[in-house]
Design a protein around this nucleic acid. Structure first.
Lengths: 225, 225
DNA sequence: TCGGGTTATTATCAAATTGTTAACGGAAAC
DNA sequence: GTTTCCGTTAACAATTTGATAATAACCCGA
């Protein structure tokens, strides 16, 4: 049903727990990496750039909280989800963890079903494109079928046009800087001129027939109603 | 978005890289200093007290990591952001750097766009006021959507007007000297006459229809109520 | 009240930014 | 092997913005 192209890193010093979690998440379709201690976790995190990191708090060497603190220092891990595994009702730890910016907790012993549920819930929250369809105003953006639906009519956009519109519509109202647009739609490697964006914007406006993309001069573009 | 009164020091022994980085960051409105080796870097850092230091790891004399360690010893550089430039995927160095307290990494070859994005992101993290809504009296300043909301009505300001108002409203009551305003909104590079500020103030007053910007004769302007 | 210094206002011009169109090369489709 | 479509660019038009100059209005103290 879903394309779970999400990477998860698990760090725990107990091999049994590691295996249970790995098995259950892999069965859900996630790509799972493991680490046996804090240092391994940091290394793996940097290498694989996982979307979610599950950290045991009690680990030899660096604790989960220390790992979290170190990772959060880097913007790369700004958006990364982090879940802590704690021994039962360790309130002090929870408070401490909260401050380091964890997204959720799990207390041992772990129920595989609870785990999977929480993980799914977290990702659902992040990937708004839940069922592949992004709703913005009366416009539907179907990522899976790569088309726009406006008032029942299906509209076919070219790839770049589609991605550009999808980006803008992903946060209605937000002004996207030209830089942001280039990064998200064209990637960081390619170098294209500034006019390129304009031309694509124009094509979208033309095909949509709606004035839903506003120009904010000197700043960028935004999608609005 | 253009509160870039930030100073950046770059240290690299390759003149080409130095120039590329300098050019791109200067274009973003940062004030940029350069150094050709570790010792120069330390000297410049002490002299200019930059907000961000970009250090090549491999440099003749002192390496970037050594420079970092030396600087971090002094409380003055406690809060200074540090980014390392490393050869491609040198994980060992990255781990080592992390421990010395770097804030981010860039791997060569450098993409100017990635560089600019990361630098902006770092500063945004420090100056948290960047996104989110700033509430001042019954006026909301929405940085993300780049508009002013007053009594439910959305008001569009030109870029400089917006930045200027955002600056004044960021500290209601505080009198901003003309110099401060110039530095914050126009940056230290650009040179504009004094009347320019007046004109922008006037436009804001006009568009807002409110008397919320007070003149403090001989001193500057302040935002109030 | 007058004068010096400062700010307000206005119109104007230059520069920056974006819009538009056409055209070209290349990839994909036929 | 054509043909079509896409992405990009260049060139130019249109628009908006920002800076300045010139002038009026203001405030304060002498």
């Amino acid at each position: 049903m879903e394309l779970k192209n999400n990477k998860i890193l698990i760090a725990d010093d107990e091999p049994d727990i590691l295996e249970i979690i790995q098995f259950n998440l892999a069965a859900e379709g996630y790509t799972v990496y493991t680490a046996k201690n804090g240092d391994e976790a940091i290394e793996s995190a940097k290498r694989y750039q996982p979307n979610l990191i599950i950290l045991d708090v009690m680990m030899p060497g660096k604790t989960g909280i220390e790992v979290c603190n170190i990772l959060r220092l880097q913007p790369v891990f700004d958006q990364t989800l982090i879940i802590f595994l704690t021994a039962m009702s360790d309130e002090k730890t929870e408070i401490e963890g909260l401050e380091t910016g964890a997204d959720d907790y799990l207390t041992k012993p772990i129920s595989p079903r609870v785990l999977v549920t929480k993980v799914n819930a977290l990702f659902r929250r992040i990937n708004k494109e839940d069922n592949g369809v992004l709703q913005a105003g009366d416009i539907q953006i179907d990522r899976e079928r790569y088309l726009i639906i406006h008032k029942g009519e299906e509209l076919l956009l070219a790839r770049k046009e589609f991605e550009l519109l999808a980006l803008l519509a992903s946060k209605p109202g937000k002004v996207f800087l030209r830089n942001e647009i280039l990064n998200q739609v064209w990637g960081t490697e390619v170098i294209v001129g500034d006019r390129t964006i304009d031309v694509h914007i124009r094509k979208i406006r033309q095909k949509l027939g709606l004035d839903c993309i506003k120009t904010v001069k000197g700043v960028g573009y935004k999608f609005e109603l």
